[in-house]
Amino acid sequence: MGKEIIKSLAFYLLFLGVMWSVFLLSHQQKTHPLSQYDKSDELGYLPSGKVLKSLALTYDEIVADVLWIKTIAYIGKSDKKASQSSHLYQLLDTITTLDPFYVDPYESGGVLLSAEFKQIDKSFSILKKGMENVPKHHKRYWYLPFFTAFNYMYYKGDYQTAAKYLEVAASFPQSPSYLPLLVARLYANTDDPAVAIPFLQEMLQNASTPKMKEEIESRIKEILVKSHIKYLNMAMDQYKENAGHYPENLFQLVKKGLITEIPREPFGGKYFISAKDHSIQTTSDVDDMKLHIQPKTSQPFMLQMQNKK
C-alpha cells in the first residue's frame, strides 16, 4: 500500500518538475531569445502574387488579410532597416494581387512608401494599381487619386498633374467639399491658371450649400485676377522690350496695341503698375494663392512628427 502511494507521489512530483522546467524554458526564450535571426525578414522571400494566388486555392482573401496584418506589424517595428522598404513594396504588390479590390493596402501602403520610405515611384505604382482595381463606388476610393495628387505636388512639384488627379478625387461625392478649392489653388500655381476656371464652373453648378457657392465664386474671381495679372505682365514685358523702359500706366499698353483693353477686375478694384518693382497689382485685397511649401528642402510631415517626439 505504502509503496503505491510513494509511486504515485513520485509520478506527480516528476510531472510537476517537468511542467516547471517547461515554464522556465519558455520564460528564458521570451526574455533572452537564443536566436538573433529575425524571422520577419522572411516576409521578403514570399512567392510572387500570381503564384500565391493559385496556391491559396479559394482562400485568396484570407491570405491577403493575414499578409496585410503581418505587413503592418513588420513595418511598425521600431528598428527601421533598409530591407523593410524593399520588402514593403513587394508585400503590397502580393497582397493587392491576391485581393485586388482591397482598398486599405493601396491607401496606407501608398502613403507609407512615399512619406516613410521616400519611394515615390513605387508609391505611384501602388496607388495606380489601386485606382485601376478598387471599385469606384467604394467610399474611400477618392483617397487614391488624392494621395497621388499629394505625391505629385509635394515630392515632384508638378502642380499641373497634381491638379488633374485632385480633380478626379473631387469628383467623388464622398470627398470633402473643400477639395475643389484646393484644385483651383494648384492650377493657380501652374503656367496657365485659367485652366481652373471651367473646372470651378462645373463645381459651381454642383455646389450644395450657399456658402460653398460663394467660396467657389470668389475662387473663380481670384483665378481671373491671377490670369489677368499674368496677361498684363506679359504685355508689359513686351512693352519694355520695344521701348526700353517700363510703361507708366496701363493705358500705354492699349495705346501701343499690345492689349485691346484693360481687363475688368472681377472684385471691383483696379489694376495698376506698382512703382516699386514694376509689377502689376490690384487695389482689391486678393489672396495670392501661393502654395506655401518647399518640396525639395523641407522634410515630409511624417518625419517632422517623429522629430518632434
Partner: peptide, 15 residues
C-alpha cells in the same frame, strides 16, 4: 485579427 488591422474590420470578418 480585425482589431489588429488598419482600416476595414468587417472585411476581415466576412473574409
Amino acid at each position: 485579427l480585425g482589431n489588429l488591422t488598419i482600416g476595414d474590420e468587417i472585411k476581415i470578418i466576412k473574409d
